[in-house]
């Protein structure tokens, strides 16, 4: 190639081509790359989420029975591309509510005996005569500390776990690959690498549980981000 060139390339030419090439290359590649990788920039670099940074109502603590978890469905609004609220309001044409339907298992923290059987629960005793009125600050704190708010999405590959009773003892079982968790959502058996994901939750004075779309990452078996929930 070199002998085909009439003039040998000077250092100035080389630098000039390099600078020009960099500028043209950047103009040609950065816009399409940013266009396609937009979600990566938003989520991984800017730390945003498609679920609004808000508390969402789950249900009343009085609905949770003593010896088994109660299933709740929370519909988190999803703000992704055309389902963003401002865009829907601006167009005025969309009648659809775009939600992420998440299943939750909520149970009272239960003592696990040595043979794996369930012992006494931390269910607050004031619930026995609770009529749905407003709670005192101590009661709120007691209930909040005693409740497990678990995602029903298996920590292995995300299938929804369900509560089954076998030989008189209940467990949360994943239908896909047989992951098993106990009533507290702790790992018992099967392929999952960690316990069930726990929602960031709070109990309020109205006796209801509220959650954010946030999960505990980590656990004994190392950090595992809930990528798909």
């Amino acid at each position: 190639m070199a002998e085909l060139q009439k003039d040998p390339m000077t250092r100035g030419d080389f630098l000039g081509f390099g600078i020009l090439g960099t500028i043209v290359g950047a103009i040609l590649t950065i816009p399409p790359a940013a266009f396609v990788l937009g979600p990566l920039i938003d989520i991984d670099l800017r730390g945003q989420s498609d679920i609004p940074d808000d508390w969402f109502e789950v249900g009343s603590i009085s609905e949770i029975s003593e010896d088994e978890p109660k299933y709740f469905l929370v519909e988190f609004p999803v703000e992704q591309i055309y389902s963003q609220r401002e865009i829907q309001e601006k167009s005025g044409t969309s009648k659809e509510e775009f939600t992420l339907d998440s299943g939750l298992w909520v149970s009272w923290k239960t003592e696990i005996l040595e043979d794996g059987k369930y012992g006494s629960t931390q269910r607050p005793s004031f619930l026995d005569e609770y009529d749905g009125g407003s709670l005192s600050e101590e009661q709120v704190q007691e209930a909040q500390d005693a409740v497990n708010v678990l995602s029903n999405s298996c920590a292995h590959l995300g299938c929804p776990v369900r509560w089954i009773i076998r030989e008189g003892e209940g467990e949360l079982l994943c239908p896909c690959h047989g992951g098993i968790y106990n009533i507290n959502g702790d790992y018992v058996a099967g392929p999952p690498p960690r316990d069930l994901y726990r929602y960031t939750h709070e109990v309020r004075e109205d006796g209801k549980i509220y959650v954010r779309h946030e999960f505990d990452s980590g656990g004994e078996k190392g950090p595992q981000e809930p990528y798909v929930i």
């Binding site: 988190f76 999803v78 591309i81 055309y82 990528y227």
Partner: peptide, 20 residues
């Protein structure tokens, strides 16, 4: 793993962007 999933999902949860 994480970035690939976020790229495929088009966000951090499955939704309209995922299907698109």
């Amino acid at each position: 793993g994480g970035p690939t999933i976020h790229f495929l999902l088009g966000g951090d949860v499955t939704g309209p962007a995922t299907l698109s």
